[in-house]
Design a protein around this nucleic acid. Structure first.
Lengths: 143, 143
DNA sequence: TCTCCCACCTCAAGTTACTTGAGGAGCAAG
DNA sequence: CTTGCTCCTCAAGTAACTTGAGGTGGGAGA
């Protein structure tokens, strides 16, 4: 039962990151310095892979790397639970705002497409109501 | 009634872009070559400002510049209405997918925050259920 | 054992859509 | 005529990676 380690490829497969991304994270200090094999290859153990999965999950949840760094600090005991909670709350707010924006976009775009589908019989640009609607939202341009 | 033109600052104010962004668009070919005053300053007229507003609106709707370019081609008569329609449809799909993703994120994050708020009395990391939950989603890491 | 090829290594540059900064010049007001 | 704002160009910086060039290592098949 030696501390068996795996190559960057295996770590990538297990964490859902690409090898290049993993190296990038290491360079950015999100991972500790990784041990190397005799041949100079990186050797990943459980703890590192866990950390990679954690990072990956945070990224999936939309956290920017800087905040992932802060969350890792919390995980490492270098920060308070409250700090993590407020990061998460901020992220919730941000996601909620983005979701609302997406809903509005979906509405607007659907409207554009619908007007086109209804009115434009052929593919003639001059008659395309959609392009007109695109422009219609454009308020006064001044003199 | 000469063709009165405005400076880049005024064009920026009217279009909602910044001067730097406008120059960037010009360099990227989204705008035609802009006339210059005697002193070498860019002079914007109605058509250009209209174009800027159009670009701005497309960007607000989430279109990447490459697709904005395609939509501008349509507006310029260099593309079919059908082409524009399929771009818009693709954008709708993309926005819809993103919105769904945002909803899921909101759920997940809210769950994390709630578990923390319920259980964690103080700001002690060791007791923070949230950080545990972050980790909990992490499946088997292999040997 | 030899050879092959894939996975790995480093370093540099490219991507998107801009933003920021340095260094210099026009232009209108006081 | 001097201030100070806006403008000019060119270069570099940003997030979060990805891609590519050029070179090494190591396990598998012949």
């Amino acid at each position: 039962m030696t501390k068996s380690g795996v190559t960057i490829g295996a770590a990538a497969a297990r964490s859902g990151c690409t090898p290049a991304t993993i190296r990038f994270y290491e360079e950015g200090g999100l991972l500790p310095t990784i041990d190397r094999s005799v041949g100079g290859r990186r050797v990943y153990r459980r703890a590192e892979i866990f950390r990679l999965v954690f990072i990956r999950r945070c990224r999936d949840l939309g956290f920017p790397l800087e905040q992932v760094r802060a969350l890792l600090d919390v995980m490492d005991g270098k920060g308070s639970c409250g700090a993590a909670r407020s990061l998460v709350q901020a992220q919730i707010d941000s996601v909620r705002a983005k979701r609302a924006e997406m809903e509005a976009l979906e509405q607007t775009l659907s409207g554009l497409a619908a007007s086109c589908t209804d009115v434009c019989a052929r593919g003639d640009v001059d008659d395309c109501t959609m392009m007109k609607d695109f422009a219609a939202a454009q308020a006064d341009l001044g003199p």
